[in-house]
């Protein structure tokens, strides 16, 4: 019996490691431990073993059974891993490019707008929107632009025909014409009329001018304007905002300076220059970036705010211009062509 068991194990240890497939394995397994298997046959002979030898033989049989099972398990594991390897195929070349599409890209104007609104949100400005089709009241009258001001000319401003009707752009006066807003300042008026002070908003958006398209002009472009209305707002507060914005955008060393200027809806009014030392493709120490001023009392009166109580400031700038400065882009038309080689540069 002992010899038979030893022979069996020897045979198994020789045969099992060389099995090539799972059917071979199943067949071999049946030959050893199946109902008619060799080990099963030997175990059946246990009955014939004399009683006093039974513990010894039983122990031998059990040892053989354990050893055989180990061989079988090893064989199975080997086969399974071979199968797995076959299913996986050869190792990948990790240096091949992924054929899957990568993420897309945000347009640079979106990036600049979002960065600006993020900066402004930190100091309490929330983003508001307004219609791009506007009326003369919101775009001009309410902003202290007299009826004969050249900016209102059909030469500079796009108008809709007198017959045009807009279901969701309200007119203040029945006779006024619809136009494409020439600045986002109209949003300030709508916001002030709708809300009550204090107000702190930023309105980014698309504006329209009747301009010849060239490297720096475009029939539509984008502006971003801030409006703050509260009690005791001062010129110094306005300067603080501008300093904060551009230090956040370009680093602590960035400086701004004001130059006196004229806008109908602010008094005093300033143009804002930016120290341009860290901007690409700029070869002068200061570069003009926007306009600002203290909200003119006339504007407050027009929206029903008491100018003796309320004061405020407004600041506006062109987003294309800012993006051109930040990225060193030299032609405004690139923003509107959507050449993918351009779009991918700002991801």
């Amino acid at each position: 019996m002992q010899d038979q068991l030893a022979a069996l194990l020897a045979k198994a240890s020789a045969e099992l490691p060389s099995l090539a497939s799972r059917p071979d394995f199943e067949a071999a397994k049946a030959r050893y431990v199946g109902p008619n298997g060799e080990l099963t046959g030997l175990m059946k002979q246990m009955g014939a073993v004399p009683k006093e030898q039974k513990p010894i033989v039983g122990k031998l049989v059990n040892e053989a059974k354990t050893a055989l099972q180990a061989h079988l398990d090893a064989a199975l594991a080997r086969l399974e891993s071979a199968e797995l390897a076959a299913r996986l195929g050869p190792a990948v070349d990790p240096t091949l490019p992924s054929p899957d599409r990568g993420p897309g890209t945000h347009h640079p104007l979106t990036l600049v707008r979002e960065e600006m609104t993020r900066i402004l949100r930190k100091v309490g400005f929330t983003v508001v929107e307004g219609p791009e089709v506007e009326t003369e009241y919101y775009c001009f009258d309410a902003l202290n632009t007299p009826a004969d001001h050249p900016a209102r000319d059909a030469q500079d401003t796009f108008y809709l025909p007198a017959s045009a009707r807009f279901g969701n752009v309200s007119k203040k006066n029945p006779g006024e014409r619809y136009l494409l807003r020439t600045h986002t300042s109209s949003v300030q008026i709508r916001t002030m009329l709708k809300g009550t002070p204090p107000i702190r908003i930023v309105s980014p958006g698309r504006v329209y001018r009747r301009d010849t398209t060239d490297a720096t002009h475009s029939a539509n472009f984008h502006q971003l304007e801030c409006l703050y209305v509260d009690k005791n707002v001062t010129v110094r507060d306005l300067k603080a905002l501008l300093d904060y914005i551009f230090a956040s955008l370009l680093g602590k060393d960035t400086k701004t300076r004001f130059r006196p200027h004229y806008f109908g809806y602010t008094e005093p009014s300033f143009e804002v220059d930016l120290s341009a030392t860290h901007l690409p493709k700029v070869n002068k120490p200061w570069i003009e970036i926007g306009g600002c001023g203290m909200v003119d009392p006339v504007v407050f009166q027009d929206v029903g705010y008491d100018p003796e109580v309320w004061s405020g400031y407004a600041f506006g700038m062109g987003l294309e211009r800012l993006a051109m400065l930040l990225y060193g882009i030299d032609d405004i038309r690139y923003f509107y062509q959507n050449d993918v080689r351009f779009l991918r540069q700002f991801a």
Binding site: G104, T105, F158, L180, A219, N220, N338, V340, L343
Partner: peptide
């Protein structure tokens, strides 16, 4: 953008 699209800006007119 997450789905692989490039954002464009076209003229309104």
């Amino acid at each position: 953008v997450g789905q692989g699209f490039n954002e464009c800006v076209n003229y309104t007119l």
